[in-house]
């Protein structure tokens, strides 16, 4: 018989990895599978959220199924000393789903350091949003491009092996 103190975060994560059961009391169901009390599981999840191990409990939408078939990875060469300020503005735009500063790769001819993912129903819609981003970046942006997705080749969630 497993006691509660022996149930590791990894076991909880492994049990939650497939998603939350769609029943009125989902934590009670997961707790039963793990052999622990519902309240204890909820407390453990709360702690994992505070630690940042769990970012949020939410839905991952499929943009394509929702009609947003145009997916443009917009990339920008932004002056290094202005990227923190401008990246925050771009990341806050409602149509930007991911926004990161990444290293340039000049040896490969890649001069871009700001990546902002923009989804839309059509490429025209993405282009309108790209023009808005260009306006916000203004003179701090030296070069830009957009890489549209042609095909999803693989899409899986994060896989963790079940271990102690």
């Amino acid at each position: 018989m497993t006691t509660e103190t022996e149930i590791s975060d990894r076991e909880i994560i492994a049990e939650l990895q497939a998603g939350l059961p769609l029943v009125p009391a989902p934590y009670a169901e997961v707790a039963t599978r793990l052999g622990m009390a519902e309240d204890d599981l909820i407390d453990r999840i709360r702690v994992m959220k505070e630690q940042g191990v769990i970012r949020r409990i939410a839905a991952a939408p499929n943009h394509y199924k929702l009609g947003m078939v145009a997916n443009g990875m917009t990339v920008w060469d932004v002056e290094d000393d202005r990227i923190a300020e401008l990246g925050a503005l771009i990341g806050a735009l409602p149509y930007v789903t991911h926004c990161y500063e990444r290293p340039r790769a000049p040896e490969a001819g890649w001069t871009y350091n700001l990546f902002a993912m923009v989804h839309g129903d059509t490429r025209d819609e993405v282009e309108v949003k790209r023009a808005e981003i260009a306006e916000i970046l203004g003179d701090a942006c030296r070069d830009r491009s957009v890489l549209y997705s042609k095909r999803i080749l693989k899409k899986t969630g994060l896989r963790l092996r079940k271990r102690g």
Partner: peptide, 12 residues
């Protein structure tokens, strides 16, 4: 219907 691919915790 595939409009939601996953529902649950997002791990970091």
């Amino acid at each position: 219907a595939g409009a939601i691919t996953r529902f649950g915790p997002f791990f970091d």
